[in-house]
Simulated assay, not measured.
Amino acid sequence: MPMEPHYSHANYGLSHVFRTGPGFECTGLSIFGYFTPLMTILGGIVDLNLARNHPWLGLRFRSGSHWDEHQVEIALRLEAYSRSIKELEAGITGTLTDYTTEEGPLEAAANPVHRLTTSGTRITGHILQTKMVVAYSTYFLHTLHILLNGKWDPISLLDGDDLWISSQAFVAATGHAVSAAEALSNILEYDPDASFMPFFFGIYLLQGSFLMLLIADKLQGEAGPSVVKACETIVRAHEACVVTLNTEYQRNFRKVMRSALAQVTGRLTENASEAQSRRRKVLALYRWTSDGTGLAL
Rank of each mutant, 00 (worst) to 15 (best):
E25T: 11
W164S: 02
A177Q: 02
F199N: 05
P112F: 15
L157R: 11
W288P: 02
R254H: 13
L50Q: 13
I165W: 07
S185P: 00
G58T: 05
C231W: 03
L116E: 10
R267H: 12
Q276R: 12
L141D: 01
F200L: 06
A194M: 12
F253D: 09
V72Y: 09
E79K: 07
G160M: 06
D162F: 01
N246D: 10
T130P: 02
N149Y: 14
F140D: 01
E25V: 08
F140V: 05
P154D: 14
Y99M: 15
Y139S: 00
K131S: 09
A177I: 00
V243H: 04
S226H: 10
T100D: 14
D162A: 04
P55S: 07
G28W: 04
G94N: 10
S119H: 08
H126E: 13
G125D: 01
I203D: 04
L48I: 10
M257R: 08
Q263I: 12
L184E: 01
P112M: 14
N111D: 14
F200V: 03
D217A: 07
V264E: 00
M3I: 12
A10T: 12
L219Y: 12
V178H: 14
A230F: 04
H16V: 13
A284N: 06
L184I: 04
A108M: 15
L297H: 15
E102V: 15
G266Q: 01
L76E: 11
V178N: 11
P105L: 15
L29F: 03
D98C: 12
L163C: 10
L283R: 04
N53T: 07
A284P: 03
P2H: 13
S179N: 12
Y34G: 01
H66Y: 00
T36D: 13
S179G: 10
E87P: 15
A169C: 02
R60I: 07
V242K: 02
H145W: 11
L128E: 08
L295S: 09
L219M: 15
A110C: 09
L14K: 13
G91I: 11
H9D: 12
N11F: 11
R122I: 15
